[in-house]
Design a protein around this nucleic acid. Sequence first.
DNA 1: TTGCCCCCTG
Length: 638
Amino acid sequence: MRRVILSTRKSLDKSPGVYPSIQRLGAGNIIPHAASVLDDFTRSCYDRDLPRAMKALTFMQRHQIWADSVTYSELVKCCLACNSIRDAKEVHRHVFSSGYEPKTFLINIFISMYVKFGMLKDADKLFGKMHERNVVSWTTMISAYASSDTIDKAFEYLILMLRDGVSPNMYTYSSILRACSDLFKLRQIHCSIIRVGLESDVFVRSALIDNYAKGGDLYGARSVFKEMVTRDFVVWNSIIGAFAQNSDGDEALNLYKNMKRAGFHADQSTLTSVLRACTALALLELGRQVHIHVLKYGQDLILNNALLDMYCKCGSVEDAELVFRRMEERDVISWSTMIAGLAQNGRSRESMELFNKMKLSGLRPNYITMVGVLFACSHAGLVEDGWHYFQSMKDEYGIDPGREHYGCMIDLLGRAGKLDEALALVRDMKCEPDAVTWRALLGASRVHRNMELAQYAAEQIMKFDPEDAGTYILLSNIYANSQRWDDVRQIRRCMRVKGVTKEPGCSWIEVDKKIHAFIVGDESHPEIAEVNKYLSQVSHRLVEMGYVPDTNFVLQDLEGEQREDSLLHHSEKLAIVFGLLNLPWEKPIMVRKNLRICVDCHVFAKLVAKVEQRRIVIRDPICYHHFEHGHCSCDDYW
DNA sequence: TTGCCCCCTG
């Protein structure tokens, strides 16, 4: 039997939406105290007093009394705020017991609640039972699936929604876009968005920008951005992030300037992207300025981690250590960043000490932490420690070694001269070796002049990457080492036939917040004449001290002076000299380059550091060389 | 009641 309450209590007026709906329930049997229970229930829901509301709900359930949908929606919010799934399910049972017809929006709220609790199955079950699904119901499910790993399901629901005759709105599109970094799908969705005239929505636009960027289509991202009339700061963050993620730090920084000019302030998201750009470009000075902005946000873990990485990769581990020490909260990423950073900057021992401290702090290392630790072992030549940590990965932390770990071990064994052991490890790998694996072996073969293994490794690499110039160059250098000029010529012919071109060596140096690029054989820098003149003066001075250019790494079989001349113009030498000419004595000369440093440039940098009494830092794609007093942090082992 | 960006470590 259905019991209905007619409440006349004035106090209910204070709770909007409740009083009229109770009236709408019509007249019936009046249960003693029912009105006051309902009143109490309503108040508790609005006051977010969950225990009191649930107590009232028990009474209501027993006597089949219902409040209206708006009040129940408040109760659901209350359950969410208190993180109480148990109570939420109780409310669900009450509202869906026979005798009450919850409004569509209330069912939507329940679905959304299950999604927020991470109970996607329950959400879907409830959604399946709905008689009438509106755009919000569909969007809630699409959004839930787009955020989960079941992306296809989001698309499936979009189609079902359209079949059901419900038109998607901007919420639906911005949700489905989250699942859409595939450019083909993205463009299809983009077409529909334009067709239904929803392209002007800022949420839709920033999702479009982000996904074009994630799919690698910066042109698409920029077009969407350009067409926008009104922009919010998230849109700015999207476009800045787009370029920062796609290794176009220059453009990211330009856009950051424009964002500030347009009157928007940077937030955590902006600063993370800007730091990423500084990191990629090795812009230490700009990075320091960003650091000042970061301090305004107080302690932010992600930003602090990004700062650590920036300082390490810009060659200033000291600054990174300072940030690390001052961090109130550190996670596995903070530690891993520092461990890898120290190792890359030639401070392997400290890196391993830090790893021990990390373990003492109770934090478990992850896959990436171990890459850093093994990298440290490999660059310090610590074979036994390397084996120990390699074994402990699986035994102590349950981490299966991946290609990166094998790569470090092969590098370690190979460079220590244990080429057989290295090859045995390759054969024993639990995952398929790839080009990187073989490249480690090729590098080791070069150091130990094992021609046979080098050829074998190079063949393997070419199977994966037949157009990788680096392999040809490395192999050619190995032949050049042994004066096998016929083989060198053969390789160069092979490169010509296959159309493989050598990436020209390029070095960058920051002076007065401007980046100066030097490329081998490129005379376009306005001060190149001056640089060349000073470079030959410096070289002469070094030769007088006994410096003999190491011509092993010249690709061509040139003779005598000509050979030294082509070495003399390696890009890092030009950049170092430019630094000598333009930076005050107390500032270190920081150079970033695209290829690995060669032996000759390494010797050159050590001597310059000694003669000129300067600190020189060269960052190559793998590690960092700190030259001071004629010595390098890598101990000539890289 | 449904929505956009950054989320750092190899």
